[in-house]
Amino acid sequence: MAERVEVRQSVLKENDRIAGELREALAARQILCLNLISSPGAGKTSILESTLDALRGTSRRVAVLTGDIQTERDADRLRRFGFPALQITTGGTCHLDASMVRRALEEMPLDGLDVLFIENVGNLVCPASYDLGEDAKVVVLSVAEGDDKPLKYPGIFRRARLMLLHKIDLLPYTRFSREAAVADARRVNPEIEVLETSCLAEPGLGAWLRWIEGRLEEKRQAGRPARV
């Protein structure tokens, strides 16, 4: 006779455990970690290129882990800016998990960093399920895509802290409704923050760079012992 045992735990318990360790290691060094997720072609790598380009004239020290199913191309693109960039080639897997990040960080020293960017595999479904120890998931939705993505892929919009409405300079050439996209994203996640960005034209990435600074400041305030 079989006995039934109640078990209440996440299916991804092991992933969540490793992500917890990563989060502690990052918190101990006061490093902000952002996990960028989008469909293929939305502009994650371009955003990171422009971000690194903007940061190289500052005192900020950042690094990138970039996930792809095949090729080292993204890391090659990102290394040109003088910051460490490491490719995680998943060999077919459609998302990054915490153990892949842990393995990659064995080759990339964290000390001295301010921000660690993780560029996930281009996919709006699977990456949403995996905690990588990040402070925030950032979903990139380009206006060259459909404005109905938030309702079609609610999981990622639900879990993201920030949505970048990217390639916003292309808006006049598309039928994309920024109002509908934002309203739908907020149906799924009333807390989601929204910024409009473009790598090639106004408004640029200024709002995104200020957002990163704000989150870094927030993390460092939280990590500081209370004043006596």
């Binding site: 079989a2 039934r4 109640e6 735990q9 996440s10 399920s129 309702l151 999981g155 639900r158």
Partner: peptide, 29 residues
């Protein structure tokens, strides 16, 4: 995901279920 309550018509609603992925039980012999 339209948050309007069908009973009172209010707009504020929070999601309480639908994104779980968890083990619930095992049967062991």
């Amino acid at each position: 995901f339209l948050g309007q309550c069908p009973t009172c018509g209010s707009d504020g609603a929070t999601m309480i279920a639908g994104d779980e992925l968890g083990l619930s039980f095992l049967e062991l012999e």
